[in-house]
Design a protein around this nucleic acid. Structure first.
Lengths: 228, 228, 228, 228
DNA sequence: TATGAATGAGTCTTCATTCAT
DNA sequence: AATGAATGAAGACTCATTCAT
């Protein structure tokens, strides 16, 4: 259960690379259709040695979920804390979400498909963090509405549309495909905001975005894996 | 494999009710995490008797996929064949899709999550039918664009947005929840079309819709389970 | 267990034709790899109806064994009882054995391969009958030796050679093949007798055989299925 | 399927002893009537641990077939390549075949009864190797005939008689029985050759055989299990 | 006579996990 | 830090057989 008390400097690096491989396999075949033996073979380790690093199969799933949720929440919190017009922040959030999806499609696939295989506290914790992110989106959209950037729309429903649009992308996205995260973010937000609100605001937001990127030198706003 | 050639009048009814139960279990735990034993217990049958009805576990999955794809394609084809303004047809398609999702959430969950567990020809066939539906959406959106109802947008990207928005809804929808399929369809289409195109058209489409429903007496345009 | 007390005139005919089909299937796939379902399908009957005729799977095997052993012993006893030179009788026995093998290859295959699947009394009885036939061959060979037709050889070993040569033929024989039972019998006996004994006797035996066939009008000496 | 890449020094020994036990069980009850559970019990291993060694049930059958076919073909090829009179080689082949049968009766029983349970490539390969051995016998018999050692007889039919006589012996042979492989080989060949050809040659061959055995020091001509 | 439905033990195989070394 | 070996429950599926109708 508990990892052995002491282990060498290579341990963590090796462990992370095992999680990488597992994520890739889980993404392909699904968590419960992927065997420990396949993972062990993929990382060229005996099953015994594998367990030395991972503890249990479910642990792998927990780590993969965390690798998505940690950067997501961190960048989400940074972005909402910015002193920028809400529409700009929305656009930043959209892009950071899509960057994450693009960067590690396999993790996202596991994140979306297999979180239900978690049990007990692990499941509870993940569900809480997911709710936390949705709440964050809702708050930001409320901010947009209050700033008069959107037409009259329930923030709850608006958030769901935002999340549907972004979170379903993983089902058809390909890293070498036609669209990148920036294009896609611009298109998505354009659709959503132009649809919900008055014209004009959006162009202003895009303009500000260019400027913002040039000036900004705070901590990374990307929800990338460096933050995991 | 093949069901026994002869079977009594109860057979098909019982079989359908077993597929119902299986869909519900698959939706909860996922296809590959659900055991034949669980299904047998749920329908109060021995494993042997269960196989008398189902042939194989994969067969169950095939049937569930078909129960989604058959009505989807049927109503999709009926709707696109209508002699109505494209925007009206888009709205009808949206609603029929959402009605289906609402009516049998469990089937949709399995449809979205577990089709990859199919093998060989079964997988091929399902993928083809999925592509057929996406093509149908793309064609209808092209029609909308050609009729001048949308701003300049790639029909491919537009279709993806349409599908993201609708198909991800199953992840949070609850049959007893806040929104019904009609509300949701109106909101989704409003977001999409108002976002993509010139204002005005949409209100006209909604008005025509009311009238259409009053007059129409052709075959059902709903993608409901009666058609499966 | 016990067949129902009364049954119509068709019963026995139908039953025999079921055993035919079973023998053919057992010959192809082996007794224990052939399912009751396959047999039922082959005779176009439900499994329930099949059991009405057969009682049990092992029963089928018993019947098939009997269909081989009954004619074998009957014709064997008839032949040894003839008042002919022993070599002539040996030749007749050889031919009647090969005729049986040719006539119903499938039964012979089952007879040779699958008698071990019998249990309890069924197995005992079949083993006894097999021993009875071997004894019969031994006695006939002893007669040949006593009549001076063979060189000095243990009748036991001679019998084994006789049986090896004949009984292994089913592994490669084909009803439409190059050799018929008469050719083969002549060749086998020629090899055996010319090998074991002094030349000359054999030609005399063959000559007598021709004559014998012309004169004989007792009960059939063939071990064919009419006797089963 | 594939055995795990690395395994300790005990692995192969244990594996071989499992195949031994399996051969013994298959010989008794037949391949398809013997369950994996029986084998596991016989070797005092859990079913899981058993599979660690065997991979699959069919694998066991393949190994057993190979254990017969490999030494058979090896010694057959060595013998036919000898620069000896054909009759001497025939006699050697006969004896090496009988030695193999005696040494591992259980393997031979499985070899003769259950090769049909193999599937796909496994079946094809075994059939090819069986045909190869029969061809080898045919060629040697042709050589005997060409050397004038046999009366006029089709080599095909002669080969079948040779094989019938030898290969059916397993059905009644007992390792502790009355005859050993050498006695039996002498008797079989005496019967066959004295029957097929002119007297005299055979005695010469037996004499040469004694001498040959005294002089020969090449690789083993026995088809025994050391070669498997 | 025959059917359709059910049973329950049995089939082969794979699973995540453990542990002595 | 890693291995090879073992476990035992669970995986999907098939079996011969029974029985109410």
């Amino acid at each position: 259960m508990a990892r052995p008390p002491g282990h060498g400097p290579e341990f963590e690096a090796r462990r992370q690379s095992i999680i990488d491989s597992a994520a890739s396999l889980f993404a392909e075949r699904g968590y419960s259709s992927t065997g420990i033996a396949e993972i062990a073979a993929a990382v060229d380790l005996g099953k015994g040695a594998l367990y030395y690093y991972i503890g249990s199969k479910e642990n792998l799933l927990v780590e993969i979920q965390d690798r998505v949720l940690r950067p997501l929440l961190r960048s989400g919190n940074r972005i909402t804390a910015l002193d920028e017009p809400p529409l700009v922040k929305l656009r930043l959030l959209s892009e950071s979400l899509l960057v994450l999806i693009f960067e590690r499609l396999d993790h996202i696939r596991v994140y979306e498909h297999d979180y239900r295989s978690l049990q007990g506290d692990n499941l509870t914790r993940v569900l809480e963090q997911r709710a936390e992110f949705e709440q964050l989106v809702r708050v930001l959209l409320k901010e947009c509405a209050d700033a008069g950037a959107l037409r009259q729309i329930e923030p709850h429903l608006a958030a769901l549309q935002f999340l549907n649009l972004h979170n379903h992308s993983f089902t058809w996205l390909r890293p070498d495909g036609r669209w990148g995260p920036t294009d896609l973010s611009r298109e998505y937000i354009r659709t959503l905001v132009s649809g919900w609100g008055r014209d004009g605001d959006l162009d202003a937001a895009e303009a500000r975005l260019v400027q913002f990127r040039a000036e900004y030198d705070g901590p990374s706003l990307h929800a990338d894996f460096a933050d995991a």
